[in-house]
């Protein structure tokens, strides 16, 4: 999908980041932010399963691979802004905090949330990826051909 033309790209970005980040890291950064917006919980954190699908031969017909645990929650700030979250695992606090941040990201508090929570999460995730990629890269095979025969 072309990210430039997608009006939801920014929101998709932070929702995905909050979903994939470890619950412990999200909680630490969120609590350090010390923003406690008044809100109503529209949907209490709920743990459920999502059936993950794959494709036969990676490109063909979809099939059910197995489920993963996901927790979801929804909140409404006093100004009426609604925040949703679906996060990986069984973290009820994680889902609630992510929903609150989703709501706050649509308000004037967006900059503070981005700087205090999202940016550090983004950096940590990127660093983790780079570290693994670097280790994988060190195991890349450099072939050399041994010349055989008389001449």
């Amino acid at each position: 999908m072309n990210m430039m033309s997608d009006p939801n790209a920014a929101r998709k970005g932070w929702l995905g980041l909050l979903a994939k980040s470890p619950a412990v890291e999200v909680a630490q950064l969120w609590l350090a932010l010390k923003i406690k917006p008044a809100h109503k919980v529209l949907r209490k954190p709920e743990i459920g399963g999502v059936m993950v699908r794959g494709r036969a031969g990676a490109v063909g017909a979809a099939f059910n691979l197995g489920e993963m645990t996901v927790t979801r929650a929804s909140v409404k700030l006093v100004d009426g802004t609604v925040g949703h979250a679906y996060v990986q695992g069984r973290g009820k606090d994680h889902a609630l905090q992510a929903a609150l941040m989703d709501a706050l990201m649509q308000t004037a508090a967006a900059e503070a949330v981005d700087a205090g929570v999202l940016s550090p999460l983004r950096a940590a995730m990127k660093q983790g990826k780079v570290n693994r990629a670097a280790k994988a890269s060190a195991t890349k095979v450099d072939f050399f051909t041994i010349v055989r025969g008389e001449d």
Binding site: G48, V50, M51, G54, A58, L65, E67
Partner: peptide, 17 residues
């Protein structure tokens, strides 16, 4: 577990190998 939904098929082409 309540079943929320099914995912979009995963894209193994984009795997971080």
């Amino acid at each position: 577990l309540p079943r929320f939904c099914g995912s979009n098929p995963i894209q193994t082409e984009g795997m971080k190998c």
